[in-house]
Nucleic acid binder design. Structure first.
Lengths: 159, 159
DNA sequence: GGGAAATGTTTTAGGGTTAAATAGTTTAAA
DNA sequence: TTTAAACTATTTAACCCTAAAACATTTCCC
């Protein structure tokens, strides 16, 4: 009989759809802003920057498969990104001694210094873009999101 | 002298970078899960589904520019997506009488029924994927994120 | 009329996926 | 031990999505 329910006016499922739309739109807005700045100020791309960032933490380099897993993109995709970075002399491919199937990718000195330079500016951009969030608010959202990505990645298709 | 600061151990800027990484990884995990399911179960793509969703709310159709603005993708991009949808007979292009520059795109009956079918299942997927969030938690994150995308989109490059 | 703005397509370049092809490594059976 | 099968690593090919820039056409408005 009640014309429309008052509390929980929105069913949880609709509310989650709203949440997903917000999440996606926010992430896309930030991402596209960062892409634009990387392009204009450093003539580079977000995926290429992500690869440099991954490699910067591993002095011994990473194999293609390690990179692909860490960045959560397909192996075929990494090949193309590395091709372009190699052409720009920012990374190099090296065959490891112990496994002739694999290829190890490492930063060149040029790649390392270029990454350091961009990373500093990049952190500043993110800081400004998310300046709405103080420490506590960041923590709150992080807690809410934490684990969700992982849970989805290894369970997505089940249940 | 203090070996490491205790409260606010993480500066706000590092915390925001963490927040951004969480946001991006979560959105990507969900998105890739949805893409995969759309591909496997309906042989379609997320951008094409987004176009159908946009058109489903406008019986009179939308112009290419309206679509491009609403979906926040480039105009050149919309051309290709519509080309494929037209090839599948899900939408059709129609020249409006009053403006010979413009093209109006509308759902075909086939497109409308296919959208309705996918939309229902899609909502269920999102509901499951975000089942960690009850109504209150959804609301909390939505409030935190709300307006951020908009604020970034019209102000990103300033200040 | 004529310049400026708007609409849509094409082009160019990069990013992303899956599936198939190659090549090397490991396992285990014969 | 030899040999086949199974598994792992990478690349390639086909397809789609994405943005930016150049272009043609049309409309707007002075």
């Amino acid at each position: 009989m009640g014309a429309r329910p008052k509390a929980a006016a929105r069913p949880a499922s609709k509310q989650r759809l709203r949440l997903w739309v917000r999440l996606l739109r926010t992430a896309r807005a930030i991402e596209s802003e960062l892409r634009e700045r990387l392009r204009v100020e450093f003539a580079t791309t977000l995926p290429q920057f992500d690869v440099l960032a991954a490699l910067a933490r591993k002095d011994d380099g990473m194999t293609m498969t390690e990179l692909s897993r860490f960045l959560m993109v397909s192996n075929g995709n990494v090949t193309g990104i590395i091709d372009r970075l190699v052409a720009d002399r920012l990374v190099l491919r090296k065959a490891p001694a112990d496994d002739r199937r694999a290829i190890v990718v490492r930063l060149t000195p040029k790649g390392a210094s270029q990454f350091a330079q961009i990373a500093k500016v990049h952190e500043g951009w993110v800081d400004k873009l998310l300046s709405d969030f103080d420490h506590a608010e960041s923590e709150a959202v992080i807690l809410h999101l934490d684990g969700l990505a992982t849970r989805i990645r290894n369970g997505g298709l089940r249940a």
